[in-house]
Nucleic acid binder design. Structure first.
Length: 841
RNA sequence: GCCGGGGUGGUGAAAUGGCAGACACGCCAGCCUUAGGAGCUGGUGGCCGCAAGGCCGUGCGGGUUCGAAUCCCGCUCCCGGCACCA
């Protein structure tokens, strides 16, 4: 190794070979040096009013679980590279970071290790922040937030109160998991294998309790249609569309013999003449009134069984699973046929969808058909398929769901379905039997958690006044830190007397605080606004600053949040807009998901199986720059895949080659004005590489971007070997500067070091992204493939814009082609300029 | 069952209608070295061939096209999501 670092660029010097330890690429030394310098200089501080078009790049903030694993690196490095490139392109880029700091693991650690959740959480945050520094991420740490601080969660409470005022937050009974052993409600995440309590291992059941909800269903339609306009992966949009589950149909009114009205939702109101029985969800409120004394025992037993039913059973597609249900003994009247039809209960009807009751049309619905066959209920044919004779209900083996003509359907007989459905609905409306309706699968968002480590819900219960919201000036309702974490099976808040007992803000009498805390998805539903003014004390965020930065231009994160987090965040944004705090309704304009990094065996990386890969060890062995490159080079970023440590040596070699190239040939002198083919080739290579790297980054193709960098270095070395004097031309110097600039987003440390060694002013990360002359990306002559009948027979060098006739003439004269033609004359010649010529004989 | 994504050398992959396998790992050979788990050079899809060269080849079967990894139809396997939604 040799170096000339003492010699300023442009000055002649002896090619003295001075062995110098500092010349060797030593990532440990380089990375520590620059990391400290950047921190000292606050290099990544973002000013709200800095020049340049704003760009808000955001990565889903992590849960502070302890340490960053390799998957975190994979997720964070890509947007970091992208954000760095945009900054070099002149944008004012906001790339903040924080911690999703409330949640179950902290509480479990508290119970297990007798350490307070707050201490555990902040210890982890400190560790992880160090790791981000090590990664070389371009994060403005002055904006860091942790959702478990009162400064942050008081605004969760503030939003809750605003939503309560607007009727968007409400209390209602809801079926939740209940552990009879621990005498407590469990979050869904705490229920293992369908119905096992995470804590004590006993079987859990569903139980009705009063819970807090956010009325996200009010926004169902908007969430659905505004989602279509977003630049998000198609599959995420599809998942959200399916989750919202819009379905068009009608609400029809049936009457029960008890005198109660029973409404049902159906997408096939045309088949109401075929409704031969009705089915209620076991939990339906009318079941009790409807059940006759003789059926009482059966019904009660069935309801009990349905309650115990595990998720696994419910989700099973087992063909052996049969339709179950029980007759209530009660009857309803079909509103169009006036027939008396039996009312059953069955678990295939869900309380949470539609009205929790259906009209059963066994002829036209497969589930109803199976039910009718199982319990020997009547089936009536009401649709005749086109160009066929009628179907005989006695012999049919499955429901008929196809198109046809209505038969035995009173005044609607003869109508074509589905074409004339609107007329049928109109008739039902005119005659008062029902009306058109749209139903959604989306349910309201249950935000209550019977846990300690979360945002206290700011209401109190007073014997006199009932439920009373905590006045805004009394926020935050602080989570007491002196809670007891013995595993009693209850939230520590319930037994925390000082927290529990308070004074009613309305009458001043004794009151009891709500002990439920909020789902942590509330925290993550608005955190990106907080980054724009993280120290604002009088509002969740400063309106003007938020207006400047939001919406987020690019949001990166895992596909696992495709539904919940992203849907809640969209909902919150719309609520914030309706509260007048912002003027847009969609939070994230562009979304990109990384794939999942699996363990080397292709299985899921899990802590419990010891399959995690520690980035710290890899950094110690190869440097953060090499690890960054390696992760980006594994494959397409959105695909993920099994982890593989072997390839990292290739990235290390690449960095060493680039390092050697710049340090050994970067000091000049650059005096030659060589007009050789090599300098032209060099200029073309440089232009093409700038284009490739930029285009690949624009398209989030990090793996091919890295390949372009590697090829650039390899090609520079080849040119140098072919023409040793090339390194003394100004063109060469320019090529090296370009190399360092192109490397800066991906390998920030070594790029800074090389920039410094080139004698360029600090910092490489404040330089402009290199530009190129598009004319140079075109070669003067290109190798054109010559095919005969689609098989490659020769290659010729031609100008890419050569006229067709000229090209044909030249190619047909080639000896190999003459031989391949064997005397046959060409029938057609296909010419794709700059690519190929295909001669068809 | 439904909806996505995918199947290309020994491995990760590239090529989205025009030279299949860029680039990297690994492997082989050579150079350098006291040494190499360092560096450099060359080779590396399969088959036939001393070679020149030829044939075959992108999960399977068919189709469209001068030309298909790429588009269309059918099948198959793997991964992910949803799942009685009336």
């Amino acid at each position: 190794m040799a170096t000339r670092i003492e010699t300023p660029a442009g000055t002649a010097s002896e090619p003295a070979i001075v062995p110098d330890r500092s010349a060797r690429y030593d990532p440990a030394v380089i990375e520590q040096k620059w990391r400290e310098r950047w921190q000292r200089d606050d290099l990544y501080r973002v000013e709200d009013d800095a020049p340049g078009e704003k760009f808000y790049a955001l990565t889903m903030y992590p849960y502070p679980s302890g340490v960053l694993h390799i998957g975190h690196w994979f997720a964070f490095v890509a947007p970091d590279i992208y954000a760095r490139m945009l900054r070099m392109r002149g944008h004012n880029v906001l790339y903040p970071m924080g911690f999703d700091a409330f949640g179950l693991p902290a509480e479990n650690a508290a119970i297990r290790n007798n350490i307070h959740p707050a201490i555990w959480t902040f210890d982890n945050i400190a560790k992880m922040r160090q790791q981000y520094h090590q990664m070389g991420a371009m994060i403005d740490w002055s904006r860091e937030l942790a959702t478990c601080t009162p400064d942050y969660y008081r605004w969760n409470q503030w939003f809750f109160l605003r939503m309560l005022e607007r009727g968007l937050a409400y209390r209602a009974m809801g079926a939740v998991w209940w552990c009879p052993q621990d005498q407590t409600v469990l979050a869904n995440e705490q229920v293992l294998d369908g119905n096992i309590c995470e804590r004590c291992g006993s079987e859990v059941i569903k139980r009705d309790l009063e819970q807090w909800y956010f009325r996200i269903t009010d926004y169902a339609e908007e969430l659905l249609h505004e989602g279509e306009t977003l630049d998000w992966p198609e599959r995420v949009k599809t998942m959200q569309r399916n989750w919202i589950g819009r379905s068009e149909g009608a609400r029809l009114r049936f009457t029960l013999e008890t005198g109660d009205a029973l409404e049902v939702f159906t997408t096939r109101p045309d088949t109401v003449w075929g409704a031969t029985f009705m089915v209620l969800a076991p939990e339906h409120p009318l079941v009790a009134r409807l059940t006759t004394p003789e059926q009482q025992a059966d019904v009660a037993a069935y309801i009990e069984q349905a309650r115990r039913q595990t998720e696994i059973e419910r989700l099973s597609t087992d063909a052996a699973r049969s339709r179950t249900g029980v007759f209530t003994g009660g009857y309803a009247v079909n509103p169009v046929t006036d027939e008396r039809i039996p009312v059953w209960i069955a678990d295939y009807v869900l309380m949470g969808y539609g009205t929790g009751a259906i009209m059963a049309v066994p002829f036209g619905d497969q589930r109803d058909f199976e039910f009718a066959r199982a319990f020997d209920l009547p089936i009536r044919a009401i649709v005749q398929p086109p160009d066929e004779t009628g179907i005989d209900p006695a012999t049919m083996t499955g429901a008929y769901t196809g198109p046809g003509i209505l038969v035995d359907s009173g005044p609607m007989t003869g109508k074509r379905v589905p074409e004339e459905l609107p007329e049928i609905i109109a008739w039902l409306e005119e005659t008062g039997r029902g009306e058109a309706e749209v139903t959604y699968r989306l349910r309201d968002w249950l935000i209550s958690r019977q846990r300690y480590w979360g945002t206290p819900i700011p209401v109190v219960y007073c014997d006199e006044c009932g439920m009373v919201p905590v006045p805004e000036d009394q926020l935050p309702v602080e989570l007491p830190l002196d809670a007891e974490f013995t595993p009693t099976g209850q939230s520590p808040l319930v037994s925390h007397e000082a927290f529990l007992h308070t004074i009613c803000p309305q009458c001043g009498g004794p009151a009891r605080r709500e002990t439920d805390t909020m789902d942590t998805f509330v925290d993550s539903s608005w955190y990106w606004f907080r980054y724009t003014s993280p120290h604002e004390e009088h509002a969740p965020f400063d309106r003007e600053t938020a207006a400047r930065w939001t919406p987020v231009d690019l949001y990166c994160g895992g596909i696992e949040h495709a539904i919940l987090h992203l849907l809640y965040a969209r909902f919150f944004t719309k609520v914030l807009r309706d509260l007048g705090l912002i003027d847009h309704g969609e939070p994230f304009l562009r979304l990109r998901n990384q794939g999942i990094i699996l363990a080397e065996e292709g299985t899921k990386m899990s802590k419990s199986r010891g399959k995690t890969v520690s980035p710290d060890d890899l950094v110690a062995a190869h440097g953060a720059d090499a690890l960054r490159l390696h992760l980006m080079y594994l494959g397409p970023w959105d695909q993920g895949g099994p982890w593989n440590a072997r390839g990292i040596t290739g990235m290390e070699r690449f960095i060493r080659r680039a390092y050697g190239l710049v340090t050994e040939t970067g000091a000049g002198p650059f005096v030659g004005s060589m007009a050789s083919t090599e300098t032209t080739a060099l200029a073309r290579l440089q232009a093409k590489t700038i284009q490739r790297v930029g285009d690949d980054l624009d398209e989030f193709q990090f793996n091919t971007m890295v390949a372009a960098l590697i090829e650039y270095v390899n090609e520079l070395m080849r040119l140098h070997a072919r023409e040793p004097d090339l390194i003394h031309t100004p063109r060469w110097r320019s090529a090296l500067e370009t190399l360092v600039l192109l490397m800066a987003p991906s390998t920030p440390y070594v790029a800074e070091e090389l920039w410094d060694r080139l004698g360029m002013p600090y910092s490489v990360h404040h330089q402009s992204w290199p530009s190129y002359d598009p004319a140079l990306t075109q070669e003067a002559t290109v190798e054109v493939v010559v095919q005969v009948n689609g098989k490659v027979r020769d290659r010729v060098l031609l100008p890419p814009d050569l006229a067709e006739e000229e090209a044909k003439a030249r190619v047909l004269a080639q000896p190999k082609i003459v031989a391949a033609l064997g005397g046959n004359s060409p029938r057609t010649v296909i010419y794709v300029p700059g690519r190929l010529i295909n001669i068809v004989v």
